[in-house]
Amino acid sequence: MSFGVEVQDLTVEYGRTVALERASLTLAPGAIHGLLGRNGSGKTTLLSVLAAFRRPSAGRVLVDGEDPWENPRVMAGTCLVRESGDVEVDTGMKDTLDYLERARPHFDRDLADRLMDTFELDPRRKPTKLSRGKRSAFGAVVGLATRAELTLFDEVYLGMDAPSRHAFYDALLEDYVEHPRTIVLSSHLIEEIERLLEHVVILDRGGVLLAEDADVLGARGARVTGPGPAVDAFVAGRRVLRREQLGPTVQATVDATLDDAARAEAHAAGLEVGPVDLQSLVVHLTAKEPAR
């Protein structure tokens, strides 16, 4: 079973700081979603509200159709792994696994033990004695083995080295295809997780900048290169995210999905059209320009 998510006009304030302001989004059940955005864009806050760690200041949040706050069923089916996870740090990791086996309805101990091996974690050791990367790996183990209907990973790979991260992606996909559930990955490492995602949400300054299928987003954006006047004529009327000039040559990054006709037009004008990867697209979209 998987939990879907519906968020309407969600506002979260910490004292005078507004972390989220009237954010609205929908996460389809059973899909892997990417939650992208810069530091302070509200990713952690959004996930904290979904996991009932925090209460919204205003707005409505529904997880599997119900308000998650103090909802035993929804909370039991939601697992938020914040960085290294909310686990006991001063006792052996085995104790934490024992605890979760009792606390979590679908916890898979065999999977947890296998993943402990994969990440070379000694269950007798305490998280405080581990490196940042190893603690993050333990968070990943907890998040995967909990097998929650809504699993939220908040920057879980911080400090993990590349082989561990790839081991995590492999383990995630492997377990996901066997036990489909709703998964949200928040990350800066967009390039690495891009192909894992079915749907992408980009937050910017406490609001939802865009929410789209990864496929659609992958085709979005184009880098047009050629003689200055020709480029400028072509991009006129399109949203230019960035313009760079090198002598007579101009490269413009536009936020547009170019169809075949547009591409043919560009080609005819002697322009080269290149792709914009998701990482650059996010960087450009969330750059200094005012979001509101």
Partner: peptide, 17 residues
């Protein structure tokens, strides 16, 4: 599709498409 997804590390929905 699931084999495809895990082998090439891509989203199964993408492979299914």
């Amino acid at each position: 599709t699931t084999q495809y997804a895990t082998t090439y590390r891509i989203n199964p929905a993408t492979a299914a498409k």
